[in-house]
């Protein structure tokens, strides 16, 4: 016997060794490859943006919980760290520091803590921060520094449009895809990440690696990424097949504009996605459709952030409509 009194609690008396903290740190690990790519192409700028975003998210969460909410401080659980990382991943390198801090404030303060903290937020905090910055500072937020291989500088004068931005603008001004094609980076460079865009969306390869790690660790299930990317491919494929001169091919859509980042890291956020597999598929299809609609017919070249936020709002509804089948309900008794 021990000196301390014996413990009595209800069953079960064993627990799996998975904890929410471990889940969060798995996500962080999965983000590392994409971060390394961004370091490679954007250099210290990427480090600066990511560092500021992460630190300000942690600090803001600490300050608000400590001094305003006067509740337990939970910065150790890794969720604020992820919010910071994902926010940075959705920002262009070279964004002014104060804007990043504003974005973190919106992400943590408004989108997360004002809803009750981890587990209670309806919208993905990082995306709320990003979209807030996008609509408030449209110019700075779309000033994309061009990727330079093996970049080590802090200053980057050369800026360019993203692939999707190029196509959108070009098509609007009456150009065809064939005419634009010299400016569109090759699929390989898009896949590897030598392209233009926000910090984390560069390399589909690195993101896929991270995504596969999450799948392997069972942090996420395949349903959301597959259904989301599948829907996007199918829809853009149809348009491309009908009119290849005005609509870009599905590969371009999948490899740019944060589609992979969104599909594996943003839409799969545990808190803001449905709980059942059926619900996840519906949710992901919804995101896919809205993204494609925004990309092809809206005023923004990219649309996955908006699409995810819109579908986030439907999660409670999806949860209450797409329930697992109860054991023993709706069955025909089969007799041998």
């Amino acid at each position: 016997m021990s000196d301390q009194p014996i413990i009595v609690s209800a069953s079960p008396h064993v627990h799996s060794d998975r904890t929410s903290k471990k889940l969060m740190y798995d996500v962080v690990i999965a983000l590392i490859p994409a971060f390394l790519v961004s370091l490679y192409v954007f250099g210290l700028q990427a480090l600066l943006v990511t560092g500021v975003a992460v630190l300000s998210c942690l600090l803001i969460e600490y300050l608000i919980q400590r001094y305003i909410l006067k509740s337990a401080v939970t910065i150790g659980d890794g969720s604020a760290l992820i919010t910071g990382l994902l926010l940075a991943f959705n920002l262009p390198a070279g964004l002014p520091v104060w804007m990043i801090v504003v974005g973190s404030l919106v992400a943590i303060g408004i989108a997360k803590l004002s809803f009750g903290g981890l587990g209670y937020n309806i919208f993905n905090p990082a995306l709320v921060g990003r979209v807030f910055l996008l609509v408030s500072f449209p110019v700075q937020m779309t000033l994309w520094p061009t990727a330079v291989e093996n970049n080590t500088t802090l200053v980057d004068a050369v800026t360019g449009a993203t692939t999707l931005g190029l196509i959108k603008e070009g098509v609007q001004f009456g150009q065809t895809i064939t005419e634009l094609s010299p400016q569109i980076p090759s699929v390989t460079s898009m896949f590897l990440g030598i392209t233009t865009g926000s910090i984390g969306e560069m390399s589909a390869l690195a993101l896929l690696l991270g995504g596969l790690y999450l799948l392997y660790r069972k942090v996420i299930s395949w349903h959301i990424p597959v259904a989301l990317l599948g829907t996007m491919a199918l829809m853009t494929g149809i348009f491309w097949y009908v009119d290849p001169e005005h609509y870009a091919n599905p590969l371009i859509h999948l490899l740019s504009g944060g589609a992979v980042l969104g599909a594996f890291f943003m839409a799969t956020d545990l808190v803001t996605s449905p709980v059942t597999k059926k619900g996840m598929v519906i949710f992901a299809i919804g995101i896919g459709v809205i993204t494609v609609v925004i990309r092809l017919f809206g005023s923004y070249p990219e649309g996955i952030s908006f699409a995810i936020l819109i579908m986030n709002a439907f999660v409670p509804l999806i949860n209450s409509y797409f329930k697992p089948r109860r054991f023993g309900s709706k069955i025909k008794v089969k007799m041998v």
């Binding site: 009194p5 014996i6 009595v8 209800a10």
Partner: peptide
């Protein structure tokens, strides 16, 4: 005195 500890 407490003779056991309840967790839950």
């Amino acid at each position: 005195p407490k003779t056991s500890e309840y967790q839950g």
